[in-house]
């Protein structure tokens, strides 16, 4: 096991940040901790990294107990949302910092830093100060800095949170490729479900200081354990007694078994997609259709149709 955190409990004042959490991260995997802000995911990551202490519970890294070991002796790489660049040191010295602390020979440091700067495409910026880099470049420097010490695990706390959406997408792909090359056990915290679904091998959904569900991105998307997970990973609408994804609803022009009669209240075209809103008894579901589907059904506002969950749709009972 790459990381194993057992029975972690953490309280800030009256606020329970983590309530008896158990986290298992297999070696070599890229795992996302996903959840709303304030849900405890960053606190969990910081406890694994040794930046915060749990009130109770144990942490193992590579099967060695790390509980109570200070951060500087855990050999984890940590990447922060706001880069945490050493502003007075050049890009080169930033990346070399951990190696200098470990008193590695000069030429080894030079070789290793050179390698890493090439890996993150910053070899031309070695002599710049962090303030002369863009946000995306700074975060790549921070990643190279964390990787320089060959950490047992790499922990990233909302690594792309401070970047604009275009750079964020680029770095996301790039992190995935980097991980495929290096295979270092990696955990990253995010509140962006798209990011988590796209990049991670496995996903841990955390809310209110508890783990809601663990699994592969597809498992969790297709079979959410509860309505929180379902709602957090994608859009949800209520159809009769079911919670169902709006693209998982069939629109029928005639009554058939299990369907509910519904009146179209509003049709909105959003680019390629058509969003249809309905009045169906005590629920007001909406359905996501392609333009082709909508045209084929000849939908108009005010007309009456029948709705039912698609055959292999995942549904939850609404309360």
């Amino acid at each position: 096991m790459g990381i194993s955190a057992q029975h972690i409990y953490k309280q800030f004042g009256d606020f329970v940040a983590l309530d008896d959490v158990n986290l298992e991260v297999p070696s070599g995997q890229l795992t996302a901790l996903l959840g709303p802000s304030g849900g405890g995911k960053s606190t969990l990551l910081r406890i694994v990294g040794g930046l915060d202490d749990a009130d109770s519970g144990t942490v193992f890294i590579d099967d060695v107990e790390a509980t109570g070991v200070p951060a500087q002796r855990r050999n984890v790489g940590f990447v922060f949302q706001h880069y945490a660049a050493f502003k007075h040191l050049s890009v080169y010295r930033n990346v070399a910092f951990g190696l200098e602390i470990r008193k590695r020979p000069k030429d080894e440091i030079r070789r290793r830093v050179q390698e890493l700067l090439e890996l993150v495409h910053l070899e031309k910026f070695a002599d710049r100060l962090p303030s002369q880099l863009s946000g995306g470049q700074r975060q790549r420097m921070a990643l190279a800095r964390a990787l320089a010490v060959e950490p047992k695990v790499l922990l990233l706390d909302e690594p792309f949170g401070a970047l604009d959406s275009k750079v964020r997408k680029e770095l996301r792909d790039w992190l995935r490729r980097l991980h495929d090359e290096m295979h270092v056990t990696t955990v990253f915290v995010t509140h962006d479900q798209e990011e988590a679904l796209e990049v991670s091998d496995s996903l841990v959904v955390i809310n209110n200081g508890r783990i809601e569900q663990v699994g592969s991105p597809n498992e969790i998307y297709d079979h959410p354990a509860n309505d929180f997970v379902m709602g957090f990973l994608g859009p949800v609408t209520r159809l009769g007694a079911h919670l169902v994804r709006p693209h998982d609803i069939e629109v029928l022009t005639s009554d058939s078994s299990g369907s509910i009669q519904a009146k179209i209240t509003r049709l909105t075209r959003i680019g390629f997609e058509v969003r249809a809103e309905f009045e169906a008894g005590d629920s007001q579901p909406w359905v996501q259709l392609t333009r082709g589907q909508a045209d084929g059904l000849d939908l108009v506002e005010g007309s009456v149709v029948w709705l039912r969950p698609a055959r292999d749709a995942s549904t939850l009972a609404a309360d």
């Binding site: 040794g50 930046l51 915060d52 202490d53 109570g68 070991v69 200070p70 951060a71 500087q72």
Partner: peptide, 8 residues
């Protein structure tokens, strides 16, 4: 930062 700086 509890463990970054010792309490003592």
């Amino acid at each position: 930062m509890a463990s970054v700086r010792s309490r003592g």
